[in-house]
């Protein structure tokens, strides 16, 4: 019976592994650095996770529909640069909708290629990662973009303002999470996203227009990216062309950490929010214990691998299995 109880511990670890690991991390960080559980630090972590979080909300739809979106990082750079540039040219009131339209157009292009032409989403969005980066550099001529009058614009409210003591980025993240979470869980569209990702053929055989659903997921994702770009631009009021570089992997890590399966068909907005916070706290904790900032790239990779492994292990019900 010894073998049996070992098996059961493995099963529990497999199913709840990410939460257990998170709790262990939190305890270790708290012991290592008293500042970790400081309310200011916690609020700071959530605020700095908001941009990543907003993007992860959209990518959650894409991943549940059974696809990937690796273009969100470079698309976010594009949105940020465009809105900063247009801010001084046509004013913030027009710059914001103009930037949203351009970003949505990029999302629509990806949605068309993956949804209607049925091209592999990994290839399409990996290509778009590079293509949009080129587009951004062409647009900016490679120069950093800055708002001329940084003190005199209301544009800074999205990234720097606060309402009732709560930073606006957190409010935007929370509001968007509530709206998109309801959409995914409660509307016919949300149901169709799960069906298409769970079994696209069966969804088609049930009369669901699969291409349209996939298209809408990418459009939603680009809307979230535009929102993230707005927060980013508003927070710094100036930006490099590479501001979103590498974010696509962090976003994906957060979504997978939350428990969405890369095979599609499972995951929720709530879980993604949890995933975003886990990632944020772990990165913050590592900084507080004195790890170099650049080491975070390695840590993010380790977390992704851990999350993917535990995702598979949870399906098998054990950590290791002789069959695939």
């Amino acid at each position: 019976m010894g073998a049996l109880s070992k098996f059961e511990i493995g099963g529990v670890l497999a199913r709840q592994g990410i939460l257990i690991a998170f709790v262990l991390f939190m305890i270790a960080f708290t012991i290592a650095n008293q500042r970790f559980l400081d309310p200011d630090n916690i609020l700071g972590v959530i605020r700095s996770s908001a941009i990543l979080g907003v993007m992860a909300l959209g990518v959650t739809f894409v991943v549940i529909s059974g696809n990937l979106d690796l273009s969100v990082g470079s698309m976010m750079s594009f949105s940020t640069i465009v809105v900063l540039d247009l801010h001084d040219k046509i004013g913030p009131a027009l710059a914001i909708p103009a930037m949203f339209i351009m970003t949505l157009a990029l999302g629509a292009l990806i949605g068309f290629l993956v949804g209607y032409l049925k091209l592999n989403s990994l290839i399409v969005t990996l290509g778009m990662l590079s293509a949009i980066h080129g587009l951004t550099l062409t647009y900016s001529g490679g120069k950093n973009m800055d708002i001329a009058d940084k003190a005199g614009t209301w544009f800074s409210v999205f990234g720097q303002g606060s309402i009732l003591g709560i930073p606006v980025p957190i409010l935007i993240f929370a509001l968007l999470a509530a709206v998109l979470g309801t959409m995914l869980a409660k509307t016919p569209f949300g149901r169709k996203v799960y069906a298409v990702g769970g079994n696209g053929v069966a969804a088609t055989f049930s009369g669901i227009r699969r291409a349209r659903v996939v298209f809408m997921c990418y459009l939603l994702s680009s809307f979230c990216v535009a929102t993230a770009g707005l927060i980013q631009a508003s927070r710094s009021l100036g930006s490099q062309n590479t501001v979103g570089q590498g974010l696509e992997l962090e976003v994906l890590a957060a979504v997978i950490l939350g428990g969405a399966s890369l095979m599609g068909g499972s995951g929720t907005i709530f879980k993604t929010v949890i995933g975003v916070l886990i990632l944020g706290f772990i990165q913050n904790g590592l900084l507080l214990v004195g790890l170099q900032f650049y080491a975070q790239y390695v840590v993010t990779w380790i977390i992704i691998i851990l999350a993917v492994w535990l995702d598979i292990a949870a399906k098998r019900g054990r950590l290791w299995s002789p069959i695939a």
């Binding site: 799960y194 069906a195 769970g198 079994n199 053929v201 069966a202 969804a203 055989f205 068909g265 499972s266």
Partner: peptide, 8 residues
């Protein structure tokens, strides 16, 4: 393959 979404 065609009739059901097994994870639903």
């Amino acid at each position: 393959g065609q009739g059901l979404v097994l994870g639903m």
